[in-house]
Design a protein around this nucleic acid. Structure first.
Lengths: 340, 340
DNA sequence: ATGAAAGCGCTAACAC
DNA sequence: GTGTTAGCGCTTTCAT
């Protein structure tokens, strides 16, 4: 193994060694080609001996695409997103693709990344960061590169999408809190435009109203732990107005819980019921035991890849939006004290 | 628009449109080539009008590599790892590479992924899952593909590595707990072989002993929240033996804290001081306020990419191991009650 | 500064 | 079943 690492061996080198033609080498490494067992054996052996491997780049030059698929994700550091990306990545690999992961926090990143991915002749893109600018979506569809959007605003056309059912989310949140005995509702709504988060806040409020209850919208800057912590002050300062709060992300719910219990000595769920959204890993930790709504991201990963493959198979098929089921997760912050 | 998405435009199409040769198109899109402003303008214009983009796959066929870099990560769903991957991915992009993300939970996955990456002529790989089998490392170095290992056992040669200073970690953990007044120590050590985690447990124990203190090793199955929770029972059942516990991952520390406080009504840090490791996002949440040791993963991402690029530039340079600085993070579980 | 031509490593269509 | 021959889209000498 003290070889000088020369140039990488090519199919030509293998052919020479095995005493066959380059095309035989190619056949040996592709399925369903007509080649004798004997030849294949010789080729594989020769290949192994010099450490040859098919160059997918060269192969992809011939096929119209590379088998690479771009994933663009934001806020990868959150439990929910990380799990989602892991799943998507796994699904892609399972289907024979190779995932390129790019993280984008902001539309400009996204645009740059999508543009860059195009240069790699990706087979498709799965976006779970921001909503891509229409012109770049346009460009993708022009180049027949499937784009699948996960939980992004339906403001742009030209992409398949997988989405949670926002209306169902709002309704489910209302019901869970209501069944837990709440009648004076509050909901956390981030100022930053995150379509899906803001959407469920609105739907929730809508539900409360149409059922004849009061709702207070508590504005937050963003949608993370510290925003929930800040919101807990608002809640405390008007505690009489609330006995049920829908925190539109689990992260905010954790902040609210910590703020309420530690800063303000408010007891959950006795004084206020708290409901999250996402079913982050921490939701089931004993310290939180948070009731929440789960997005079934296992499905969403599968579905995203499925939609991509369908469009790959038939680029002219009608645009599809698939809805992901929600599951209510009843834990300690809505019904009773956490039990251990 | 309603164009039929034909084949993707090639440099030839652009050339024809701009009235120049294909090579001029190539020059227009590479830096530092001699081409007149006038020609470049024409080319760029023509390219834009038909939506041409350089095909990196074809380009990479010529250059010996693709600009793709593989990242193989395990346990992506943990805050620590997700942050790390995000950073590495960002650093790579900043340096002009494109990250392929593969998640591997287990050595067999790893082997398969590394092998697959080789087919893409990746410029390098950054591994932060398991320790790769020697033969595949061997193959990489034979093909002059740099491999950088992050916090993996030094049992294999042939790869540059970035590592936290295990000895320093053990010492720092001892000091932090000792300075917080602990004299009867415990340390959580996962059975599963995770080099870095087990290593710091051992070093910690070593330090306690050499300073003349008792240490109890508390075995855990793995290294996550539920393992910490389980360990809290062991701690409780021998509470007199402990007043300072080093939880070798933050995740376990959270479990220990929840178990101690909720299940067993033990107060931290009065009865027992708790120290974590990683500085996960949740460590600074008010509910935990966990004292811990931070790995400065910002650095580790940068350094990993740097090592990769250095080896790319000079494949024969001597193998390098870089050590990442540690920072002690004093919060509420070692010194005093959390304040708010 | 530009065009011509060769070739990166592989696959596919065609003969035999 | 196997060899031959064209390319896939791009870059890079080498002339001019």
């Amino acid at each position: 193994m003290a070889d000088i690492p020369n140039k990488k061996p090519t199919s030509y080198d293998v052919a020479k060694l095995a005493g066959v033609h380059r095309s035989a080498v190619s056949r040996a490494f592709s399925d369903g080609k007509s080649i004798s067992d004997e030849t294949r054996r010789k080729v594989v052996e020769a290949a192994q001996s010099i450490g040859y491997r098919v160059n997918y780049l060269a192969r992809g030059l011939h096929a119209q695409n590379s088998g690479l698929v771009g994933i663009v994700a934001s806020r990868l550091e959150t439990s929910h997103r990380a799990r989602q990306v892991k799943l998507i990545s796994g699904e892609l690999v399972k289907s024979g693709f190779t995932p390129i992961l790019l993280t984008a926090d902001g539309v400009e990143d996204l645009r740059g990344h999508m543009s860059g991915l195009l240069n790699f002749n990706v087979s498709g893109m799965i976006i779970t960061s921001d909503t891509p600018p229409p012109d770049i979506i346009e460009e993708c569809s022009h180049l027949s590169v499937p784009v699948v959007l996960i939980n992004r605003a339906p403001s742009v056309a030209g992409a398949d999408r997988v989405q949670l059912d926002i209306k169902a989310a709002g309704r489910m949140a209302f019901q869970m809190l209501h069944e837990a005995g709440a009648t004076r509702f509050g909901v956390l709504e981030p100022k930053a435009q995150t379509y899906s988060v803001v959407g469920r806040a609105r739907e929730f409020a809508q539900n409360c109203k149409s059922e004849g209850f009061d709702v207070t919208i508590i504005k937050t800057e963003e949608q993370s732990y510290k925003d929930g912590l800040a919101a807990s002050d608002d809640i405390q300062s008007a505690l009489d107005s609330f006995d049920g709060i829908f925190c539109t992300t689990d992260l905010m719910a954790f902040g609210v819980l910590d703020g309420l219990r530690i800063r303000h000595d408010v007891s959950v769920p006795e004084q206020v019921r708290i409901l999250g959204f996402d079913d982050a890993d921490q939701a089931e930790w004993s310290g939180y035991n948070l009731s929440t709504i789960s997005q079934n991201i296992e499905d969403s990963g599968k579905v995203a890849v499925e939609l991509m493959m369908k469009r790959l198979a038939d680029p002219s098929r009608i645009l599809e939006t698939r809805t992901i089921a929600l599951t209510s997760v009843h834990r300690g912050t809505t019904h009773q004290r956490p039990k251990f």
